[in-house]
Design a protein around this nucleic acid. Structure first.
Lengths: 107, 107
DNA sequence: TCGCTATGTGACCATTCAGTAATATTGTGG
DNA sequence: CCACAATATTACTGAATGGTCACATAGCGA
C-alpha cells in the first residue's frame, strides 16, 4: 500500500461520500441522462448539479457526450454499483443488528 | 433509494475517504492490533490515531477489546476489503488507461 | 495510595467543500 | 448577427473535519 495509492483510493471514496452524488449515480443507473433530466430526477438545482457532475467526471465515474445543446452523462464505471451495493449491504446489516439489540432491550 | 439510506451509505464512504483510516484498516488486515502497535505501523500520533479509531468503531468498521492496559482493535466487517479492492482496482485501471493515453500522445 | 503506562477527550486552528447566486460560455434557430 | 436555451464557472459563505496540544481517564504494580 503506497501512500499515493492510499490517497487515490481515499479520493475515490470521497467522491462517493456525498448523498447528492450517489443520487446522481442512481439516476444514471438505467441509462444516460442529460443535465435537465438529472435536475428533475434529483431535485438539485442547475449550478449545484453541474458541480457534482464535473467532480464525478473528473474522477472518471461518469462519461460525457454532447448532443446539440444537451450534454448527456452516463456511468463510466460498472464497479460503482458493486461498491454501492456492498456499502448498502453493510449499512442494512448494521441497521438490522441494531434493531435486534433494541428489541432485546425492550423485552 | 430512500434519502435516509443515501445518507447512511454516504456516511460509510466518508469514513473510508481518508488515507489515514485506510492505512489503519490495512494495518489490521492480518489480525488485531493494539493502539501502540498501530501507532508504529501507521506513523500516526496517539491522539490523532485514537480519534480515527473512535470514528471507525462508531461506524462499526472495527471492534474493540480491552486487555489490561491495552486496547485491541480488529476489523469488524469483512466487506471492507472487498470495497477497498474494488476501489483500488478502479483506481489502478484508471491509472493504466491514463498512462496509455499519455504514451500514445508521446509517440 | 502513588506513580506509571496506555488510551481517550476537549478545545482550538486551518482547510476543505457543499450550496447559492450571479455571470459566462456554448450551441441552435431565425 | 441576435435572442434564447442548456450548461459551466466563479466568488462567496457557512458547516464539517483533520491535526495538534493539553489534559483526563483507566488499569497495573509497588
Amino acid at each position: 500500500m503506497t501512500p499515493e495509492l492510499l490517497e487515490d483510493v481515499a479520493a475515490r471514496f470521497k467522491v462517493l461520500a456525498e448523498p447528492a452524488r450517489l443520487q446522481v449515480l442512481d439516476a444514471l443507473a438505467d441509462g444516460p441522462r442529460h443535465v435537465s433530466a438529472l435536475m428533475e430526477a434529483t431535485g438539485l438545482n442547475q449550478a449545484n448539479l453541474s458541480k457534482h457532475l464535473q467532480l464525478l467526471h473528473a474522477h472518471g465515474l461518469v462519461s460525457r457526450r454532447r448532443q446539440g445543446l444537451f450534454v448527456y452523462y452516463a456511468l463510466a464505471d460498472a464497479s460503482v454499483f458493486t461498491l454501492c451495493d456492498l456499502a448498502c449491504g453493510a449499512v442494512e446489516e448494521r441497521a438490522r443488528r441494531s434493531a435486534q439489540r433494541h428489541a432485546r432491550a425492550m423485552r
